[in-house]
Design a protein around this nucleic acid. Structure first.
Lengths: 239, 239
DNA sequence: CCTTTTATAGTCGTCATGACCATAAAGGGG
DNA sequence: CCCCTTTATGGTCATGACGACTATAAAAGG
């Protein structure tokens, strides 16, 4: 960063791209917008936009998140910087450097595509292919990241409503990882981790369920998982 | 990323900053350069520079790494994107967005500050405080990152020369983590992990040592550690 | 020769975990 | 009304990983 006057530097456009995940009908969904103009007109893409002069990338990402989802309060949502994509050819028009973020939503707000976003839609993760720009790669990186973070953090509760059952929490893991977990073992592990979940004082959920009503829990104060909750058969996993 | 024509966007300067670590005399060292001009003239900073029009941030980081260290071949070195720092006020002159990288060197090349870098110096990590810009924060983030990666990857061998003893490998962990480890247990864990290290066919190291000569190993093909090698007493570690 | 130093081998108890089995409490269909 | 299905919850058991620790081997130095 030395010698600004000695070196020429090119101005870049800086954007943020968001990989916003939620779980809907037991499947992982991601928020996509349909592009209205070239390049990639008609193709789906991750929501995002330019970083404004007086805001950081984090601020821009949270602003875009609010705009695209139409949610009133996005301050409590989990938003995390993923990485920055800066290949020279990633946008055919100009040099764009994009800072990618990942966000987790408890449940999909039905009315999305709030203010200006043309068409925003929750798409099953498995169907979100052939996106514009390098968004396939960004989305894959984001999926890998949240999968890994479920292992050693308490992030899974961010996918859940304020009160949830252990079965719902387990479904978060199974949905993101694409595996099945043993229910008693999952239960033992979660309850043995201090601060992961807390039982809500006098509640059990009766009406909806088919079987025995499940106890309700809410997210605890812990943020990390020690020891971690590793994915099954995760032998040769990428670093 | 939709609607380029509808939104104004500000051009940003994009730079890379490098946190380059090595182990020297049993202590963690980081490569710093002394700033020649304002702002922060005379202060130490992380090496870095502008991303050129036709290169990615990764390419720019590797180029800067070669320039600052004076190494002929930096292709084999571990270089990893850390995160991007984009706070509006982080450079008093202009809007600069910086992509930070972390690099690991096996042993410090004595002659550094190769081509144009004014004064580059290996500084003990504990003494690298009060850096220019937000580099204190970047350096702390980088340190936390490599400490965490040692837990679940085979990255530690990147700090070692091509052939090394298990004692040297253990010192990498102890130096980065600032802890001490039990030698037999560390040995058992490393040797029990397939592909972490491989014994070099007929070698033992005799001359330098004071005690019993140690067997030589080289880095194996594995990249991840399952199960991980967790830091001792790492209860409330940040996510 | 004895001490120091470092490397290497093994032991033992604890804890986490995967693979199960068993029971409880709801709804649905005959 | 009984039985079957479904889901939640409680428990066992064996294995494996790990921390703490002891013991032996092989060098250098006085």
């Amino acid at each position: 960063m030395d010698g600004y006057d000695k070196y020429a530097f090119e101005p870049f456009a800086v954007t943020v791209d968001l990989a916003v995940f939620t779980i809907r009908d037991g499947a992982l969904h991601v928020l996509l917008v349909e592009r209205g103009q070239e390049p990639y007109a008609g193709r789906w893409a991750l929501p995002g936009g330019f970083v404004q002069p007086e805001e950081s990338a984090e601020t821009a990402a949270r602003r875009e998140l609010a705009e695209e989802t139409g949610l009133k309060d996005v301050s409590g949502l989990h938003l995390e910087q993923l990485r920055t994509y800066s290949e020279p050819g990633r946008d055919p028009r100009m040099r764009v450097v994009s800072v990618a973020f990942t966000a987790l939503l408890p449940d999909a707000p039905e009315a999305h595509g709030g203010s200006d976003a043309a068409k925003a839609r929750w798409t099953p993760y498995d169907a979100a292919r052939n996106l514009a720009f390098d968004h396939d790669r960004i989305l894959a990186d984001a999926h890998e990241r949240i999968g890994a973070k479920l292992e050693y953090t308490c992030l899974a509760t961010r996918f859940c409503p304020p009160e949830f059952t252990l079965g719902e929490l387990q479904q978060v893991y199974e949905t993101v990882w694409g595996t099945t977990l043993d229910r008693p073992n999952f239960r033992r592990k979660v309850l043995a981790t201090p601060g992961f979940v807390e039982a809500v004082p006098g509640g059990a959920r009766l009406t909806g369920g088919r079987g025995k009503p499940a106890a309700l829990y809410r997210a605890g104060p812990a943020t990390t998982l020690h020891p971690p909750l590793l994915r099954p058969t995760s032998e040769g996993r990428p670093a």
